[in-house]
Design a protein around this nucleic acid. Structure first.
Lengths: 239, 239
DNA sequence: CCTTTTATAGTCACTCTGACTATGAAAGGG
DNA sequence: CCCTTTCATAGTCAGAGTGACTATAAAAGG
């Protein structure tokens, strides 16, 4: 913030990029848009766009999210700043500094093609081929960040509808972490974390498929998890 | 990254701001510079400056760090992106988007007054009065982020010289978290975390003050801590 | 009815944790 | 020169948390 008089300052273009994640059929999906112009014409990329003169990056991200998903109400969706990407060569045309965000959606509205995007669609995370610009890295950073936050925050409920079963909540962890979890143990830990979930009082049950119907839960008050729900054996015992 | 043709794009000034933290006499200190010009002339602020045309934010942050601290070698210092602050009114003169970084220093070189700053000095975190711009918030965010990373990474060693005692390492945790820790338990947990620290083989000992001299340790290979070193009772039992 | 499927309950050994107590090795002051 | 202070390090013990299981319950489908 010093040196306004000593360094000539260069104007930069500032954009936001969004890694919008959701769960479809138990698998992690990401929202991609197909680019219409050069560079990277025809290739898939994360949705995003320029900051308007009077917007904060958060405001711009929420606006773009609404435009790209076509959702009428994006006010309640989880949106979080990831980090800022500023390498000089990341856009071949000009100097662009991009503030990346992670957005988490409970359900996936199928049709998009919002006002802006030529085409937008949900893609399984693992099939999200090579993306334009440095978006592969942004997407990988987003998944890693979300995976880490699942451990010590109640973020997983942001992937779930207002009422959900513990099995659905477990699918979130399994999809993001890429591991399988023991069902009784997962249940025990979630219920032991105060404020993580609370049961829906009416003996409401969801009859989704076969098997015994599961009890429904809502997201609780707590933002942090005590004790945390650590991923299994990321490193066994290196020493 | 869409819509290059649909939205006119506005140029922004992009800066980096640095929350440079260190430990002096067991207390957390932050590096502040005194502003020479309006706005906020005479007030203290975090060091920082504009991005040069061919720099990434990381490069600019490291350059500013060298300029402001006067350190000859900043290549090994821990520098990490915090987040980006982009609220429209955060600089009264113009639209400035600032990428904030956290830097951690082991020892505190006293004299600064680098090339850029009119005056720079280490200030105890708690006495870092009202700062210019939104720097109070940036500083608070930096402390919170560092405090959280102490739990599950080996970041604390970045505050320590190449060889340190477990008592010094414990002071890092106590200063950043603002709590006191039990010494035998802290020791047990640090030594049980594989790759966190490794003993200096020669029976080297440091005779700093009174009392029994402590054994010396070096930072280990591990970046993450398993199991994590959780802060005590951030929330007791809210439910 | 019997099998399959999924939810939920419970067990057991092991580890980690917080709160302690105890011992050891230096410095400093009578 | 002893004795107190100060700090490092070792050890103990009960309780909580965890992974790997086994067992029961409640539905759907043949």
């Amino acid at each position: 913030m010093l040196g306004y008089d000593k360094h000539a300052y260069e104007p930069f273009a500032v954009t936001v990029d969004l890694a919008v994640l959701t769960l479809r059929a138990g698998a992690l999906h990401v929202l991609l848009v197909q680019r219409g112009q050069e560079p990277y014409a025809g290739q898939w990329a994360l949705p995003g766009g320029f900051l308007l003169p009077d917007e904060s990056a958060e405001t711009a991200a929420r606006r773009e999210l609404a435009e790209e998903t076509g959702l009428s109400d994006v006010s309640g969706l989880h949106l979080e700043q990831l980090r800022t990407y500023s390498e000089p060569g990341r856009d071949p045309r000009m100097r662009v500094v991009s503030v990346a965000f992670t957005a988490l959606l409970p359900d996936a509205p199928e049709a998009h093609g919002g006002s802006d995007a030529a085409q937008a669609r949900w893609t399984p995370y693992d099939s999200a081929g090579p993306l334009a610009f440095d978006h592969d890295r942004i997407l990988a950073d987003a998944r890693e960040r979300v995976g880490a936050k699942l451990e010590y925050t109640s973020l997983a409920t942001a992937f779930c509808p207002p009422e959900f079963t513990l099995g659905e909540l477990q699918q979130v962890y399994e999809a993001v972490w890429g591991t399988r979890l023991d069902k009784p143990n997962f249940r025990r830990k979630v219920l032991a974390s105060p404020g993580f979930v609370e049961p829906v009082p009416g003996a409401a049950r969801l009859t989704s498929g076969r098997g015994k119907p599961a009890a429904l839960y809502r997201a609780g008050e707590a933002a942090g998890l005590h004790p945390p729900l650590l991923r299994p054996s990321r490193e066994g015992r290196p020493a």
